[in-house]
């Protein structure tokens, strides 16, 4: 669909039907205003507060930062408070290699996990799209079902599997593949497994929906003309599934980069990820300003993929109309 037709289709709603009455226009406004105000207050404004606190100094008080703005003390104290804000916490982050390494390792871990999830998820989604139409809804439900069971529980289940005396090692030892238990728990490998496992439905679903829409006669035409199946896949199937690939990768990469539960339960103390650094900074060290600065920088790193994701959502919405 071209942009011109997309906009033409969206103009002038809701205008059909009888002219709107006064009462109706109030209802119309409320439909917009109620969720709008809620999200402004509970989603957007909190970010502004995080940014403000990231510029504040740590203090031994409750709340543990200065300055705190108190409107009742008048405009002067507000201005004085504003002058106290500075980028000290960000300099602190930049000067400490711990944070830098944590950011790098989070992005790398999330990227590797995303690629692994794509490699695991693509054949599943492809198989589902090729399945007989009668069993596709069942397969789809089976992919979604684990998502409905607790995330924490699914991560927890892997501890029993991966630990040195766990089920995987018991199995491999009894089969005789290995003679020494593998050390997987408390390494990056365990984090990869945890992320791929937990986020696999997010990868499979968009892939499936783009593969299912694909016209299979294109492949047949290519093969009739002598194109080998692998070439046909790379020249036709994969390019046509690209929107699904991008959506799936974003849905895995963005949350994985800030993941806390998986590195905490499966990664052990020697692995480094920024979600856990932020958590510790806040809960163990009680340093709210530094934790806020960590969050702001993480958000800046993720802003490009997030905007890309929103753009794709908006486009899909225009096309669905």
């Amino acid at each position: 669909m071209t942009d011109a037709t997309a906009t033409a289709g969206t103009v002038a709603t809701p205008s059909s039907g009888p002219p709107t009455s006064f009462l109706q226009s109030i209802v119309n406004r409320l439909v917009i205003i109620v969720p709008y105000v809620w999200l402004l207050f509970f989603f957007l404004i909190p970010f502004v507060i995080v940014f403000k606190i990231s510029l504040s100094d740590t203090a031994r008080a409750m709340p543990p930062y200065v300055p705190t703005f108190d409107i009742s003390k008048g405009f002067g104290s507000l201005l004085a408070g504003l002058r106290e804000l500075d980028f000290e916490n960000y300099l602190w982050l930049a000067g400490d290699p711990l944070y830098f390494n944590a950011y790098i390792s989070s992005v790398v871990v999330a990227a590797i996990s995303t690629v692994l999830a794509l490699l695991v998820g693509y054949p599943i989604a492809y198989g589902m799209a090729r399945a007989p139409a009668t069993i596709r809804p069942t397969l789809l439900m089976l992919v979604i079902l684990p998502f409905w069971t607790s995330f924490l529980i699914r991560v927890y289940a892997w501890i029993g599997i991966l630990k040195p005396e766990g089920l995987l090692n018991q199995f491999l030892l009894s089969v005789g593949v290995i003679s020494q238990p593998l050390v997987i728990l408390n390494t990056y490998a365990a984090i990869f497994i945890g992320i791929v496992y937990s986020y696999l439905p997010f990868m499979v679903l968009p892939l499936y929906s783009s593969l299912e829409k694909m016209d299979h006669s294109l492949i047949e035409a290519a093969q009739d003309l002598g194109c080998p199946p692998i070439t046909a896949f790379w020249k036709i199937t994969f390019p046509l599934s690209l929107p699904g690939v991008v959506a799936g990768c974003l849905l895995v990469f963005i949350p994985a980069a800030g993941e806390f539960v998986i590195p905490d339960l499966l990664g052990g103390s020697r692995t480094l990820m920024i979600g856990r650094t932020l958590w510790n900074e806040f809960n163990s060290n009680g340093d709210w300003p530094v934790a806020s600065a960590v969050a702001v920088v993480l958000l800046l790193i993720l802003i490009v993929p997030i905007v890309l994701f929103q753009h794709m959502q908006a486009k899909a919405q225009e096309q669905g109309r």
Binding site: F47, I49, P255, G258, G275, A295
Partner: peptide
């Protein structure tokens, strides 16, 4: 898609 630590901290 927002990482939960960010949403939690901001709220």
């Amino acid at each position: 898609v927002m990482p939960e630590v960010i949403t939690g901290l901001s709220l």
